[in-house]
Computed example of a mutant assay.
Amino acid sequence: MPRPATPANPTSSAPQCVMLLRAINVGKRQLPMAALRELAGTLGFAHARTHLASGNLVAQVSGASDAAAKRLEQAITEHFGFHSDVIVRSADQWLRYLADNPFAKASAAEPNRVMLLLAKQAPAAQAAARLSERAVAGERIQAVRDGLWIHFPEGLGTSKLTPNLIDKSVGAPATARNWRTMQALAQMLSA
């Protein structure tokens, strides 16, 4: 990976945020997490840490989250040759998501089958209803704040809720993280 110029001194007092990359490490869209952490550092994101290989980044970021997302998207395109949407949420927003989980009982029993779906913008008003029309096998969808919670009691393998259908219903590219990953990211925020 070519090295970008070293940024001005990042400040450790910048607020923490969670950055979710969409659709990486599938097919030719490979982005090693060590390279992502290094890239984040060159952009001035302090204390960059990753979780799993699916594009979960926690860092301290100065300035607006939209601007940080655009900078990271542009850097990924320049250095890795593909576009990945980046969705940014503050530490406070992330912790509110955990507190707002409408499927708490299912999350405790099946943490990998409850997902929070997020996009750069709030989902379209009827997104949950549109997705519920296509739900199968007891799937439940609920809108809370700017996210959609989905419980997949039979797992993702049998679901009719495809990424294209989700994006169309939401009105923007979206990405999801399961309850287990959400908790791990919250722990990283508090470390």
Rank of each mutant, 00 (worst) to 15 (best):
T77F: 08
A106S: 11
S190V: 06
S90W: 01
M188K: 08
K168T: 14
A35L: 09
A46R: 01
L117K: 04
G27L: 13
D167S: 10
M182T: 08
R180N: 12
I141C: 13
K120Q: 12
G157E: 11
L36R: 02
T162F: 14
H151S: 14
G171K: 01
Q60R: 00
P10I: 02
K105D: 15
P10C: 05
R130E: 06
P163D: 13
A69W: 07
A129K: 09
L39E: 00
H151V: 07
W179N: 12
A68W: 06
K70E: 15
P111G: 07
R180K: 15
M188Y: 05
K168M: 10
I24Q: 10
A106W: 06
Q60V: 07
R71G: 10
V144H: 13
I150K: 03
S13Q: 13
A184V: 01
T11G: 14
P2M: 13
S169D: 00
R96C: 14
P10G: 04
G41Y: 04
V18E: 01
A53S: 14
Y97C: 09
A14F: 05
L43Y: 02
N25A: 05
L117H: 13
P7Q: 05
P123S: 02
S169L: 00
V58D: 04
S62H: 12
V18P: 10
L20G: 15
S169G: 00
L20K: 10
A143V: 02
R140Q: 15
A191I: 00
T158Y: 10
K160C: 04
R113I: 09
A53G: 14
K168R: 14
L36S: 13
R113V: 01
